[in-house]
Computed example of a mutant assay.
Amino acid sequence: MDLPRSFVIRESGHRIHNPLTSRKLADLGEALNPPPGTRLLDLCCGSGELLCTWARDHRITGTGVDISTVFLAKARARAIELGVAGQVTFTHGDASDHVADDPVDIASCVGATWIGGGVAGTVDLLRRSLRPGGMILIGEPFWRREPPDQATVEGCHATSEDDFRLLPELLEQFGELGCDVVEMVLADQDSWDRYVAAQWLNIRRWLEAHPDDELAEQMRAELTAAPVLHARYQREYLGWGVFALMNR
């Protein structure tokens, strides 16, 4: 049970596996200002940057769950680097059915709502680990503006315009799910650039080191197409944000 190799190659140099810069991740922590000892469950935690930096900056504790053995190894190394290995733990597993043994103060899934079959299912999953009065963090794409055609939809890694909502509609959906939106931090175009352009460099360095790998042709095709697709479609049409929710 692990992530596809292509994903690991593409994001091998990333600490944050979505278009959230380190500054924006810190901004979110500062806005929420969790008190010391706050317990956080992070599903699909990736390389653990949220848990590790908030453990350092806000003295929280918590657990991260992810399917990637490579990213979990990076998360554990990052915890040691930041001196928080005694505050956070990382578990290899399928986050789609993971529920905390004891209720947590914050339950998060930042950028992987596929584990619940979408926003509604992921909110329901996170609620199962949340104490009364706790907070949910959801990272989710949205349309910055309506895509004009199917080429734009597919250029944003979607199959249908219905895969994402416009930002006001996404906020309305949270309300329909019985949540108050109490904070949000949104990616901007520079955030997207930093996220995807780093993927291109990761791929190029991997290709130079592995020219005869069975994935080389696939990764070369991706590197050739990705910059133009990003500039033409994703950068203009696709937004992304982390939304803090509390049950009504």
Score class of each variant (00 low, 15 high):
Q87R: 15
A120E: 15
A100C: 04
D101W: 08
G86V: 07
A79H: 01
Q87F: 08
D94P: 05
C109A: 09
S108W: 02
A95L: 11
P103I: 13
T89Q: 12
V119S: 12
D101I: 05
A79W: 00
P103W: 15
D94H: 12
D97Y: 11
G116K: 02
T122R: 02
V84G: 00
G83D: 02
I80R: 15
E81K: 13
A100V: 04
T91M: 08
T122E: 04
G93M: 07
H92P: 03
P103K: 14
H98F: 14
I115N: 07
V110L: 15
D105K: 06
T89I: 08
W114I: 13
V88C: 06
V110N: 15
A95W: 10
A79M: 03
D101T: 07
G111H: 03
H92Q: 13
A79E: 00
T89H: 13
T122P: 08
G83C: 01
T91E: 09
V88H: 04
Q87L: 11
V84Y: 00
L82C: 01
D94Q: 10
G117L: 12
F90L: 07
F90P: 00
F90M: 06
A85Y: 06
A100K: 04
I106V: 15
A107E: 00
I106H: 05
G86A: 11
G121D: 05
A100F: 03
C109L: 06
C109R: 03
G118V: 08
G117K: 14
T91R: 09
H92K: 10
A95P: 09
V119M: 11
A112H: 15
D105I: 11
D97H: 13
D102W: 12
T113Q: 15
P103D: 13
D102I: 11
I80V: 12
A112K: 08
C109P: 03
A112R: 15
A107W: 00
D94Y: 10
G116W: 02
E81Y: 04
L82E: 01
